[in-house]
């Protein structure tokens, strides 16, 4: 050890000591220790914790939608008496033009939203990561070709390209997801490539090359893990945009098809009654707003933890 300055605080004890141990005894302890340190700096940011809370709430609501929702999200009540009712004790957020309980629809809509978010993340992130790291690591003509393809996708406005895809594939929630995923990977490829360019000339990559590692092994085992954190941050921050795009497609009638309780489509129906029955459009609008905000706050918090360079 070099003559490091001495910390003045007392040693932590118990579980914390185990997690923060400078001498982990197993792979798991080392990994958990890292995770704990990350959590500690994350939880120091109250807004990030609020964001995480919102996202967890969204997940819980989606899982237990059947239990939480008091009414069916699809079949409405009596069209003569229960149509467009304002928020009340029986219908917490009012009813829509089909006499359906808006609260139940929003609760079930969370499933659609989560479905979109998760699928887009699962499709777009790996594509972007792979294209970016391969392009950045190999360089040369591979880089040129892959990056020009990325540029082509980047040149289209997201919603317009998604519209074109949906128009070609036919409206529907699955096609909307594919369309959004296809339009959202290019920025990830860009980020991954920029990170890779910085990493690929570092000594630790040279060292693993000198051990005879194959190119796929270097990219997957050594480059990807380092790009992942900034990508996770970016994807989380993009979630809000993805939800809005999905809602936009739904609003235009190209996403989820009725009677599926999708928030964007719900806002679209509410548009007709915006002046007199404001709650029909406002309630799903608020849901979109809150969830988007939650993802943004979470992304900001994650950035501070995972990507200290980008933080102020």
């Amino acid at each position: 050890m070099t003559g490091a300055p001495l910390p003045l605080t007392s040693e932590p004890s118990g579980m914390r000591a185990w997690l923060l141990s400078p001498e982990p005894h197993s792979r798991w302890q080392a990994r958990l220790g890292r995770f704990y340190l990350g959590w500690r700096s994350f939880s120091r940011n109250p807004l990030a914790v609020v964001g995480l809370g919102i996202v967890i709430l969204l997940i819980l609501v989606a899982i237990f939608a059947d239990v939480i929702a008091p009414y069916s999200p699809v079949t409405g009540g009596d069209l003569r008496t229960q149509r467009l009712l304002p928020p009340s004790e029986t219908y917490w957020l009012g009813t829509d033009d089909q006499a359906r309980d808006i609260f139940s629809r929003i609760v079930h809509g969370s499933r659609v939203t989560l479905f979109i978010v998760v699928l887009v993340a699962l499709i777009a992130t790996p594509i972007g990561l792979l294209v970016g790291t391969v392009s950045g690591y190999l360089g040369g003509w591979v880089d040129t070709v892959l990056m020009r393809i990325t540029d082509i996708f980047l040149a289209f406005p997201r919603l317009i390209l998604a519209l074109a895809f949906v128009a070609a594939l036919g409206p529907g929630i699955e096609n909307a997801i594919i369309a959004i995923a296809i339009t959202s990977w290019p920025p990830y490829a860009r980020i991954a490539r920029a990170e890779t360019l910085m990493i690929r000339n570092s000594d630790f990559i040279a060292a693993v090359k000198l051990q005879g590692a194959s190119t796929p092994r270097i990219i997957l085992g050594h480059v990807v893990p380092l790009c992942l954190s900034s990508l996770i941050v970016r994807v989380t921050l993009d979630m809000a945009g993805i939800i809005l795009t999905a809602a936009g497609l739904g609003f235009l009638g190209l996403g989820a098809q009725p009677p599926m309780p999708e928030w964007g489509a719900m806002v679209a129906t509410g548009r007709n009654y915006l002046i007199d029955q404001w709650w029909v459009a406002a309630m799903p609008g608020i849901a979109i707003f809150v969830v988007s905000l939650g993802f943004n706050l979470l992304g900001d918090g994650l950035r501070d933890v995972l990507d200290p360079k980008a933080a102020k």
């Binding site: 300055p5 001495l6 910390p7 003045l8 605080t9 500690r40 700096s41 120091r44």
Partner: peptide, 8 residues
């Protein structure tokens, strides 16, 4: 620091 005070 978050981890305590260090006297350099």
């Amino acid at each position: 620091l978050r981890t305590g005070t260090v006297e350099a």
